[in-house]
Design a protein around this nucleic acid. Structure first.
Lengths: 143, 143
DNA sequence: GTCAGTGCAAACCCTTTGCAGAAAG
DNA sequence: CTTTCTGCAAAGGGTTTGCACTGAC
């Protein structure tokens, strides 16, 4: 077995507090999922997260991963990123930022610098309120 | 039966030329789909389009609608709009514009005016070229 | 005839759901 | 105890695919 290069997860206590602050009961599975997910800013599909969580130690079921991600999204702990019809990505960074999506590789990354023009919103349709703005720059691998 | 308020489809010949200009062989089914789709700027899912095409006159199969929409997208005749993990929308307007998506109603609409700031692209990751920019403003219905 | 296009049904795959057992407080 | 959560397997639902048939040239 290989030596883990660095601790891939953050402190349990920190995660538990984070969950509680968002009104999420910190069950064992949720904490484990959150430790993996919030270890660093990243974009994971449910399946990728499932694999990562179950690669080290304990086992969390697929249903629980899906349920938990939906819960986290509802509670504002993660941001759903919808760029690929075949799967949803979950972004552990909920602060406002934009994305590159490489349609050839399926890779999703952050636009590094605060996007130049923070456009102010156009006037919204009557009876609606803004819930968020998604900016996705689709890329292709050159040649 | 109700009187059709206005012709819902555009001239066959116009559509056929449009397909040919995009290297798409104008088969009967494709022309029919295109007539429906390009009658006006709109956002339709494959299923909605299937229903619309088959409501008046001839029959086109579900497989053909899906195949055709993929073909049209590949050939640049329509723009895929990915905002909802449960289904892809096809936009008959391929010119650069932004979208509102009401997450409560599932309604997809255009941002009416040229969005104020046409932000210039940030520098792209090495080895990639831009393929398009999607701006989606998610809305909720104000109670 | 040849080759592309179509239709049908089955296959796919991600995601959700029903329900019984387990855990949290 | 009571309520919420988890796990399993099955169901769901949009989309794709295999394959035989049709049609255009």
């Amino acid at each position: 077995m290989e030596k883990a290069p660095e601790k891939q997860s953050i402190d349990r206590r920190v995660v538990i507090e984070m969950l509680q602050r968002h009104d999420v009961t910190p069950t064992q599975q949720r904490v484990e999922i959150a430790q993996m997910l919030f270890a660093r800013p990243q974009h994971l599909s449910a399946d990728q997260l499932l694999a990562q969580v179950n690669s080290e130690s304990n086992h969390v079921s697929k249903a629980t991963v899906y349920n938990t991600l939906n819960l986290f999204a509802r509670k504002g702990l993660v941001r759903e990123v919808i760029v690929d019809p075949s799967r949803v990505f979950y972004d552990s960074n909920t602060s406002q930022h934009h994305h590159f999506f490489n349609v050839d590789t399926g890779e999703l990354t952050d636009v590094p610098l605060p996007t130049l023009s923070m456009e102010q919103l156009p006037s919204l349709p009557q009876g609606t309120v803004a819930a968020g703005v998604d900016v996705i720059i689709r890329l292709r691998s050159a040649d």
